[in-house]
Structure formats: structure tokens, C-alpha cells
Design a protein around this nucleic acid. Structure first.
Lengths: 212, 212
DNA sequence: GTCTATATTTCGATAGAC
DNA sequence: GTCTATCGAAATATAGAC
């Protein structure tokens, strides 16, 4: 199924395209050199615009970063909620594993996340609030998932919820760092699955005892 | 036992002191704002020197970073090798836990590490080689420790060595990031111990099966 | 060993023409 | 929507006096 392209003025076309191109260029450069390490001039160059041309679409460098993070969140959120409702219990860990598998084919998005996250620990950083709410969201979702798993009898009721959640997020973040430094030698999906397997073996309520 | 202070010329005294002060100032600022986000002018200001005065001791900003990383490694290495020989088997994980406990009282060293590590993923970064060898060292040491634990019958021989090593390092790194963002709400020692407990429960060979 | 002065870039952002 | 021109600030580094 295809639609006839609706009429758009010349300016309208290149405007949206330039904006999208700029966001993509910024993702690549922020991923490689971080936010502070990237100048808007270089983003403009890669976009095919002058510096001022770029700043017409994004009034400041921080605004460009916001657009970049918005684009990233859209991709990730879309993927995680693809199956309809958010998965609960151990299934939540499986969908995280799927996310890891997908990320392991996208070094740029991973680089962007690792670099910006580390910078944005600083309170004054333009992405600081984004980072806080990003962690708050992931924590809340995963905490809910574990609690529901406990109520449904899938996860032992004496499991330390906070530790399961936070160490899992830590593994997620830490593996990305290792993988960026050594993409060929580190398999993020395999290692994340090993971690989840460990949790399952220890904290599943119904399953038979882990093989010894 | 105390030594009489040997004679030092006036210049000799203040030289070494200025150098040490500068390294300390740089640690604090790099921890808060990263390497790229910190100017040597601000380091000089905090040191109590002019910019040129600082650059007399460190010919470039990168040289200052080298001195900072050297100081950091000296502290960490001293701590880990404090008990004599490097611990092997599960004891290696215990000594990591002790390191985590100590780090949780030193936000500056943690901030320095997290910030610089993320920046230095970039191949051209002045700390890139430092970062690579840092990971290589930790990996090699922990891998050895696990292998020795297997040979001594303390760790199951079918344990996935690589996964134990890399997920543990990932937890280490990931928890530091979470803790920096939320120092009051995240207990690094408690969470790291929970991770190690999980590994022990699953991969100890001698111990009784984990309580269910 | 430390300073002042300065050279040289590069940065983010604005003004205004087309 | 895009460009050229430019501003003002801040960066790293060097030269040379004391």
C-alpha cells in the first residue's frame, strides 16, 4: 500500500529532512566523542549545512541533544512495548535480553548512551534530568515486573527485589562499556543471558532445583 | 621511627608540593566534569597557581591526566595487594567486595573513574590505552583467580569462567554509575555482595546446595 | 618555580542578507 | 530555510621576565 506524496512546499521538504539528517549526524558524533567533545560546527558539516543553518533548526546545542535523546527513547521504547503490554515476571528479563541482542548490532546507539550517561551524572549537564528519569523509569518497570512475578508465584517471595533490579541494570550498563571497548571479544547477549540464568536458577520458585 | 628531614632547597619543597596539589585538584575536577569538561585554567586556580605555573609541572593537559591516573592506580593497586599475594578463588571476589566498600566512601575516585572510562572509549583519547590495559589487567587477574579456584576444587569445573569474570566487572562498573547518580539510595557494597552471593550459590562445588 | 603577556584556535551564538 | 559575517568568551599552549 502506497500513498501519493501529498503536496509539500519546497521549504517544507528540506526543512524536515535537514532536521532528521542533523539528528542522525549528532547521534553519530555524540556516540564517538561525547556531547562536550563534539562541536555544533562538526555536526553541521556532517549534516551538509553551515553552522548557522543547523542552529536555525535547533536554537542551541542543548536543544540538539534533547532531540537526539528523544529520538533514542522513541526507538527503545517502541521496541520494548512492541508486543503490547509490558512483560512481567521473568518475561521482563527476557525482553531485556532481546533489547541487548538488538543493541549488540547498534554500536552507535550504545556509544551514545554510554557516553552521554557518564557525562550527565554531573548535576548541571543538559541531559542530567533525562538520565535521572531514564533510570527511574527502568527501575520502576523492572521492580514492578519482579513484584508481579512474586505475586504470580513465579519468583520466590523472599527474593531481594532491589538487588535483582539494580544488579541487572548494572550488568546491562557495564556490559555496554566493555563491548564498546572490545566489540569482537565481548558478546553482550551471551553474557547478559548468563546473568539472567543465574538469577532464575537462584530465585525461581516453581522450577526444579538447578542441576548440580 | 622517624627520620630527620633531609635538606631541601626552597624551590625543591614547593615544587613537589605544587605538583601534588595540582594532581589532587585535577582529580576533583575531572571527577566532577570529566577530562574534556575541565580546563587547565580551573585546575590551576584550584591549585593556587597561574595557568602557566601549572603547565610548568605538566607540559600538557594530557600529561596532567597521566599523572592523575597514575595516582589513582597507585591507590587501588596498593589496596588490592595489601594482604601480600593476590587472593585466588572466591577470596578474589571478597577482596573486590572490600574494594567496593572502600570506594563507597570515595565518591571522587569513583567519579574520576566513571567519567574518564566513558570518555576514553574513544580511540584517540589520551586515556584510551590506560583504559584498555586497566580492563586487561582486571580481567586477567580475575580469570586467573577463578581458574585457580577450579583447580583447588572450590569452584565448579563447569563454571563459565568468562561469564563470571565479565558480568562481575560489569556489576562493578554499573553500580558505580548508579551510585554516583543516587548516592543515598544505592548501597554499592550490599548490591555487589548480593551478586557475589548469587555466584557462590550457583557455582561453589563443595558447599551444600543453596537453601530453598 | 612562578608569573604576565600573548599567540592561536575553536567554541556557541547572533545579526542580517537572500 | 540557508547562508556569510562577526562577536565575545574560553580553550591550550608558548615566550620571556623575575
Amino acid at each position: 500500500m502506497s500513498f501519493p506524496p501529498r503536496y509539500r512546499s519546497r521549504a517544507d521538504v528540506s526543512g524536515a529532512e535537514s532536521r532528521a539528517k542533523a539528528v542522525q549526524a549528532a547521534i553519530e558524533l555524540f556516540a564517538a566523542s561525547g556531547y562536550k567533545g563534539t562541536s555544533i560546527a562538526r555536526v553541521a558539516e556532517r549534516t551538509g549545512l553551515s553552522q548557522s543553518g543547523l542552529l536555525h533548526h535547533f536554537p542551541s546545542k542543548a536543544a540538539l541533544l534533547s532531540a537526539v535523546l528523544e529520538a533514542r527513547d522513541a526507538e527503545d521504547g517502541e521496541f520494548l512495548s512492541a508486543g503490547g503490554d509490558a512483560p512481567m515476571g521473568w518475561a521482563a528479563f527476557d525482553s531485556l535480553a532481546a533489547l541487548v541482542a538488538r543493541n549488540s548490532t547498534r554500536p552507535q546507539l550504545v556509544g551514545l548512551y554510554v557516553r552521554v550517561s557518564a557525562e550527565a551524572v554531573e548535576p548541571g549537564h543538559p541531559a542530567h534530568e533525562w538520565l535521572r528519569s531514564h533510570y527511574a523509569n527502568v527501575e520502576a518497570w523492572l521492580t514492578d515486573a519482579v513484584r508481579v512475578g512474586q505475586e504470580q508465584g513465579e519468583i520466590r517471595s523472599d527474593a531481594p527485589v532491589d538487588a535483582l533490579v539494580r544488579t541487572t541494570i548494572a550488568v546491562l550498563d557495564g556490559l555496554q562499556q566493555q563491548w564498546l571497548l572490545n566489540p569482537g571479544g565481548v558478546s553482550m547477549p551471551k553474557l547478559f543471558n548468563a546473568h539472567v540464568q543465574g538469577l532464575r536458577a537462584q530465585w525461581s520458585s516453581a522450577a526444579e532445583p538447578p542441576p548440580r
